[in-house]
Design a protein around this nucleic acid. Structure first.
Lengths: 169, 169
DNA sequence: TCTTATTCAGATAATAAATATCCGAATAAG
DNA sequence: CTTATTCGGATATTTATTATCTGAATAAGA
């Protein structure tokens, strides 16, 4: 049971995109360089975010990524689901139907108690992540960081962020 | 992000052990046969349960497994932790320390907001599973099952369950 | 007390998933 | 229209999960 590293990268990337001035974007290579991670694999995560509607992309010269929605409407669950898949982590294989005392399918309309308990636990997990938006994260980061670090971030963003063409994917 | 199949098997096996008459045990092969799963892999899960103190084992002739504690004190989280490991699913790799705006280690005493949010979500998950004991499951199963299925289960258990020697591992 | 049958425990292969990478399609600027 | 730039899907490599096998330990019976 473990969450893929891509989720962490995607979350940090989305948080950084949230710091962009309006109407500008960052290319995948810049996002990877900022976080010190391999560019091609970071690109794969961003691709997943775009597919899920979290980010918008433009291709070609001056292409790049930006958030597709206001930061208040993007949660950590959205990002996790986009990268790791929205499906349940516990998959019931209905072994109660196997073996000498196996139940008949018609007696298995309701999910088994074990599967139900895991589904409930996953719901709690999901709800907890869905309660944290990119906007919440940004607020806490601004409050907790050293002023000169925030300044360095803004300088870097202003140097790297390109005006983005209007066409979106 | 997914929970290994072994957790499901271990949970069903523990639930069945809970149905044993006192002082008797089941061997790994019988537990596997009851659930219609490969014996050696089921044995591996039981081994993990014993290592974690959920089950007690006896080796040699008339050996087998039984619960090590009252069913009220064994939760689904105990079983999940025993099989899949108790560690966190989200592992922060501190990428905030990388790249051109990387933070210095001395400014990273507190966990980053993203890691903290995932830790909180996992706590919710864990607490939800820890609230369900084997005794709870047994109660629901008895309430929801057809009487003749319960009877078949008891017959099978009485036929397969051996008196267990006292030495425990 | 010694032998033997039985069972669990740790070490060992095969398979699936996550990680990392590359090349072609698409877009916009010159 | 050509060319430089960037994203998107397809492709290798590494790691974790799934499945299996052989040896160590225990207890019963001679």
């Amino acid at each position: 049971m473990q969450i893929s590293k891509g989720v962490e990268w995607a979350a940090h990337a989305a948080a950084l995109l949230n710091g962009l001035p309006p109407g500008r974007g960052l290319k995948a290579e810049a996002l990877a360089r900022y976080h010190g991670v391999p560019a091609p694999y970071m690109a794969k995560q961003l691709q997943a975010l775009s597919k899920a509607g979290v980010t918008q992309t433009s291709r070609g010269a001056h292409g790049g990524y930006r958030l597709a929605k206001p930061a208040e409407e993007i949660t950590l669950w959205d990002i996790t689901a986009a990268v790791d898949g929205p499906g349940p982590a516990f998959r019931c294989t209905e072994i109660r139907q196997n073996g000498p005392c196996g139940l008949k399918p018609e007696d298995c309309k309701r999910p088994c108690q074990i599967a139900a308990a895991f589904a409930s636990a996953e719901r709690a997990f999901r709800d907890s992540l869905a309660a944290v938006s990119l906007a919440d994260l940004a607020g806490q980061v601004v409050k907790d960081s050293e002023p000169d670090h925030l300044l360095a971030m803004m300088n870097w963003l202003n140097a790297e962020a390109d005006p983005l063409s209007e066409k979106s994917a």
